[in-house]
Every structure is written in structure tokens, then in C-alpha cells.
């Protein structure tokens, strides 16, 4: 079950301040990295919410991110819809997409779930890829951005946009944390721990899983919506399966079922990507290798390991205190 421990708070705050500082002190390139980290962290938070606390390891979160980008991008670029309205549509649309995938797959466990989510993600990709109205393979340019000039924020400024993305990441974390601390979230953990018993106690497991998928989908969609605003251009690349893999790497590397871990994982992975990117453009190979090593090495992940060690130390301390 999820508890907002002080380790989590410290860790998320540290990453947030680090990103803000880097964006403010660094130049344009630094801000691009900050945006990349913030958006990947949002996507990974969405995935960890579902996979770490609900036991549903989805391989279509990359596609949901892309669906969010497309709903926002297509409505602003094609019909000139107000960006706020478009953002709302993107979040609602991805929640609906998540809910449907969740409802369809709720009866099947483990491996079937993985295969089915991979397939439905690919379905979204194929639909976008083949749709002429959405620009097909070429994608769409002319995607809008939020207008925050009323409060004195100019999002065409790279620093201010980067700060918006960091705010988005923080908000995503808080939404996920709040939901996980609620009865809804505890119940989700209950399903993860023992689905049959929850049903025997009177829970409609299927509805609950679908709803959880919808919440997770909305967070992933919000990240995609910000990504579309960032590049102001959308293409089927936003929905490609490798992004789901990248999100999974972030979650496993950071620590699945820790919520704060994905934030750390995203910062680490993007930094690593730019470091390795200086030597080779075969980044995907490293993603795959990291995923394999992270899965083979064990389950806790970086943040999970830190949390585990710290809590064990505090336990031994209290025990020592009692004996003394």
C-alpha cells in the first residue's frame, strides 16, 4: 500500500528543485532535457500507478501518451480549438481509451494482459498511421500551446515552458499519490495483493480495474498533451511501441510500486540517453539492455533499494532503542 513517506517527499522535491535549477541556470539545451525528463516522468508515474499498485503491467502506455498528443494536436491544428478545451478533450479521451482497454482486459491476468495491451497500443498506432485526416505518416504541424499571458507567463519562452512541464510532473505525482491514499487506491492495492479475495468481499474487480486504467490513462494522456505542445508537431512516432518500453524501463529502474522511483528513473534515463547519445545513435539497444539487466538484477529498483535500506536501518534503530 502507498504511503507518502518522508523519503518519497524528499526525493521528489529534490528532483523537482534540481530540474528547476537546471532549467533556470542552463541554456536552451538544458531546458529541452528538463522537459524530456518531466514528460517521461509523468508517463512513468502513470504506468507505475497501474503496474506497481494495480499489478497491471501495461505495454500500451506509450500509445496512450501518443493518443493524448494526437487529440490535443489534431483539435488545435485542424480546427483551431482553444488549447484549454483541447487539453480537456485529450485527458478525457485518453481516460476513455484507458477505461476501454482496462474493461476488455480486466478478466485476463499477467501475460495475457501484457500481450493484449501491446496489441491495443499497436492498434492505436496503426489507426493514426493510416489516417489521412490526421496526416498519416507525415503527421501534423501547427499544434497550439496554452495561452497563459493573462497571468504573465509566456509559454513560447523555453524556460517558462520547461517550468510548466515540471509543474505538470509534480501535479501528476500529487494526483497519483492522492488517489493511491484514498479508498480507491487502497482497494487497487488490495486487488494487486489478492484479486479473488477482493471479489469475495464484494468488489466489482472489473469496474475497479477499468477505472484505475482510466486514471492512469488520463495522466499518460496529459503528458502526451504537453509533449504535443512542446514540439508543436505530432507524428505516429508518438505512439510507437518503443515508448512503452522506455516507460517500463524507467519504472523498473526507478523502482516499481514506489511512485517516487519513476521520477528518479526518468531523470537518470534521460541523462544517460544524452550521455550515450554523444557516442552512438543506437539508443534503443541500450534501453533494451537496461530493461533486461534491471529485470534480471531484481525488483526493487534504485529508489526501491534506497527506501528499503533506509527503512531497515530505522527499524534496527528503534529495536536497538527498545533493548537499550
Amino acid at each position: 500500500m502507498f504511503y507518502q513517506t518522508s523519503i518519497k517527499t524528499v526525493c521528489v522535491a529534490a528532483v523537482t528543485f534540481g530540474l528547476i535549477a537546471y532549467a533556470m541556470l542552463g541554456g536552451y539545451f538544458a531546458r529541452e532535457i528538463v522537459i524530456e525528463i518531466a514528460l517521461l516522468a509523468m508517463l512513468a508515474i502513470a504506468l507505475d500507478f497501474l503496474a506497481g499498485y494495480g499489478g497491471m503491467i501495461s505495454l500500451c502506455h506509450g500509445a496512450i501518451y501518443g493518443v493524448g498528443a494526437y487529440i490535443f494536436g489534431a483539435t488545435t491544428a485542424l480546427s483551431g480549438t482553444d488549447p484549454w478545451l483541447a487539453a480537456l478533450a485529450a485527458i478525457a479521451g485518453t481516460a476513455l481509451f484507458g477505461w476501454i482497454v482496462g474493461a476488455i482486459t480486466a478478466n485476463v491476468g499477467g501475460i495475457f494482459f501484457i500481450m493484449a495491451t501491446l496489441a491495443f497500443g499497436q492498434m492505436a498506432y496503426v489507426i493514426v498511421f493510416e489516417s489521412r485526416a490526421l496526416g498519416g505518416d507525415d503527421g501534423l504541424a501547427g499544434v497550439g500551446r496554452f495561452d497563459l499571458s493573462a497571468v504573465g507567463v509566456n509559454l513560447n519562452d523555453s524556460l517558462q515552458f520547461a517550468l510548466l512541464c515540471v509543474a505538470g510532473m509534480l501535479l501528476a505525482y500529487m494526483v497519483a499519490a492522492t488517489v493511491l491514499r484514498s479508498s480507491f487506491g487502497r482497494t487497487l492495492s488490495g486487488i494487486h495483493a489478492n484479486e479473488d479475495r477482493m471479489q469475495a468481499l464484494g468488489l466489482s474487480v472489473r469496474t475497479h480495474k477499468a477505472n484505475a486504467f482510466a486514471i492512469s490513462g488520463a495522466i499518460a494522456g496529459a503528458a502526451g498533451m504537453l509533449a504535443a505542445q512542446h514540439t508543436q508537431y505530432i507524428s505516429p512516432e508518438y505512439l510507437v511501441w518503443t515508448l512503452s518500453g522506455e516507460a517500463l524501463v524507467v519504472v523498473i529502474l526507478g523502482g516499481i510500486g514506489t511512485l517516487a522511483g519513476p521520477v528518479v528513473g526518468a531523470a537518470l534515463l534521460v541523462t544517460l540517453e544524452h550521455f550515450i547519445g554523444g557516442y552512438t545513435d543506437r539508443w534503443h539497444m541500450f534501453i533494451g539492455a537496461i530493461l533486461i539487466v534491471a529485470v534480471m538484477a531484481g525488483r526493487r529498483g534504485l529508489f526501491g533499494e534506497i527506501e528499503h535500506r533506509l527503512s531497515r536501518r530505522s527499524e534496527t534503530k528503534t529495536e536497538a532503542g527498545i533493548h537499550a
Binding site: M1, T178, V179, S182, S183, F184, R186, T187, S189, G190, A193, N194, D196, R197, M198, A200, L201, G202, L203, H208, N211
Partner: peptide, 26 residues
């Protein structure tokens, strides 16, 4: 057929909340 990995309190809490029908509360 318990909720392994959780505490006794969390186990009983899950059962009580589920039965009370408040599982959807955010």
C-alpha cells in the same frame, strides 16, 4: 487466502471498506 505483504490492520481495513461499498471514494 489473505492479502500477503500487508499488515493485519490493512487486511481488515480492506475487508471492512470493501464491504461498506466505499471502494470508489477518492
Amino acid at each position: 487466502n489473505l492479502f500477503e505483504g500487508l499488515t493485519v490492520r490493512e487486511n481488515l481495513g480492506l475487508a471492512a471498506t470493501t464491504a461498506s461499498g466505499r471502494t470508489a471514494s477518492l
